[in-house]
Simulated scan of single mutants.
Amino acid sequence: MGNANCLFCACVQQSNVGVVEKWGRFLMLAQPGFRFLNPLAGECLAGILSTRIRSLDVRVETKTKDNVFVQLLCSIQYRVVKENADDAFYELQNPEEQIQAYVFDVVRALVPRMNLDELFEQKGDVAKAVLEELEKVMKTYGYSIEHILMVDIIPDPAVRKAMNEINAAQRLQLASVYKGEAEKVLQIKKAEAEAEAKYLGGVGVARQRQAITDGLRQNILEFSHKVEGTSAKEVMDLIMITQYFDTIKDLGNSSKNTTVFIPHGPGHVRDISNQIRDGLMEAASAELKAE
């Protein structure tokens, strides 16, 4: 139900305030509710103002410090101050145009001092500057500025495309750096694994040879004790012949081998035995010199 008035009475709805005149001069403000008027004394309801918060969207086109044209969409929320409704009624004929003019003035004075990146980062400062200026001016006209929101900053489409390309290039560069670091770590770990594997392989071979040596020594000692009259050399020759024939047997049983040429005969076995014995003697001599 809207506000209603007749010649002798007026009804002002909630969140509204009426302006009462007497003989063309302001008399008083009519608060929400029912009120009698005396038209014989020159009283009349000149108008009604809403005290609700209203919103005004202002689109401002300006240029930044780095010569980029942008559009700023501001949302101004304002209301009539109930106690000063007479100033709002008589002082301003079109408050929306007045607010828009001041927004244009402040934004076009402040934004050209900023680069585009600074504008995006400091849009709150722009809104604060507009709020301070509007509050100072509109207060004298009976209006209160409640909030100012910098809703959107819209650069030129070509500039937005360039910014997106720059951002994409930076992200690709960063991804390349991370990829290179990952490959570096992978190569280092791979090299460390290979070094560890070779080290463990060497330890395994050394232990294997030590076990073989210990086994041969044990066999020689046991054979010498059980068979009287045999020397260590004779036992070594016998073991070497046995190992030689076992090797030939293994080569023959393997299905993956092709033709293999090896020297065969008692003389070759004796030569191999002599070479192994000489090697063991040289190793023992080197250990004595080291001590």
Rank of each mutant, 00 (worst) to 15 (best):
E291N: 15
T230D: 03
D105V: 12
A127K: 01
K22A: 13
E228Q: 11
K226C: 09
R113D: 15
T140C: 11
F34N: 05
A4Y: 03
P263L: 06
T64K: 00
S176N: 13
A193R: 10
S75E: 11
E132D: 14
N3M: 04
P157E: 06
A168R: 11
A162T: 10
Y199C: 10
A195E: 09
K123G: 12
I53H: 05
V205D: 05
L174T: 08
R277H: 05
P155N: 01
E192G: 08
L119G: 00
H264S: 08
F8H: 06
M1C: 10
F69Y: 14
G18T: 03
N5V: 07
Q218W: 11
C9G: 13
T140V: 10
I53G: 04
T259R: 09
I145S: 06
Y102G: 06
G142V: 02
L56R: 00
T258M: 11
Q31C: 09
V269C: 03
Q173S: 12
D152S: 13
K256D: 14
I239Q: 02
G180H: 09
G124I: 02
F261N: 11
L216M: 11
G42F: 02
A41C: 03
I212K: 05
S254T: 11
V177N: 03
F36S: 10
I145T: 04
D57N: 04
G229E: 03
N5F: 15
P157R: 01
F261W: 08
N253E: 15
S144N: 09
Q243F: 14
V269T: 06
S231E: 06
T62Q: 00
P263W: 01
K190A: 15
K184G: 15
L221E: 10
A109I: 02
A290I: 06
Q210L: 13
G2A: 11
F104I: 06
L45V: 07
A85F: 01
L251R: 05
Y178V: 10
E132T: 12
P95Q: 01
L221R: 08
M114R: 03
V58D: 03
Y143R: 00
E192T: 07
M28L: 10
N257T: 11
V70S: 01
S15H: 05
A109V: 04
E132Y: 05
Y102R: 05
V177R: 02
Q243E: 15
F8A: 14
P157G: 08
V19D: 01
L110W: 14
V106S: 01
N5C: 10
